[in-house]
């Protein structure tokens, strides 16, 4: 099954809407609750990152029989140094993002610990792509 969702940068009111839909869908399909939680925590972190840092993005969800593959493609400033961004505590978040309870430099490391496979690619001035794969 393939699904696509649009995410607007700066739209904190709706941040998490896609993660919520994906969680309900995975639950309905009877995926193990532990795997559902890991997947949606990683997805939610990535979705919030689009809202916090990018102009807009698209989330592509592919639910297969034995795994889920989620690709988040955003148009935004990109990440100049991915290795640095993966370090715990490193953040470029705005005060507004911090007021929402994020921006502590924990998102990417937490995505990594909740994903079986995590791929992050980025081009400065163009955008970032995050791919999360979890096996059932």
């Amino acid at each position: 099954m393939h699904f696509e969702y649009n995410v607007e940068g700066g739209d904190f009111t709706n941040a998490g809407t896609t993660s919520s839909v994906v969680k309900k869908m995975m639950k309905q399909l009877g995926v193990d609750m532990g795997i559902v939680k890991r997947t949606v925590v990683a997805l939610y972190e990535a979705e919030v990152n689009i809202v916090a840092h990018a102009y807009r993005g698209v989330i592509y969800v592919d639910l297969e029989e034995d795994h889920v593959c989620i690709k988040l493609v955003d148009e935004g400033p990109g990440i100049p140094d991915i290795a640095k961004a993966m370090q715990k505590g490193y953040s470029t978040a705005s005060p507004q993002v911090r007021e929402m309870g994020f921006g502590a430099g924990m998102g990417l490391p937490n995505m990594q610990s909740n994903a079986d496979k995590l791929n992050v690619t980025s081009e400065v001035g163009k955008g970032t792509t995050v791919e999360i794969i979890n096996y059932f």
């Binding site: 009111t13 972190e45 929402m100 309870g101 502590a104």
Partner: peptide, 28 residues
């Protein structure tokens, strides 16, 4: 800090006590 809440690893019934009152608290 919602980022911290998202790192919790437990199967128990947890109650969150917080001073952060917005929609992202609920989503988290």
């Amino acid at each position: 800090l919602m980022s911290d809440v998202l790192t919790l690893r437990t199967d128990k019934n947890v109650m969150l006590i917080t001073g952060l009152c917005n929609t992202q608290t609920i989503r988290t």
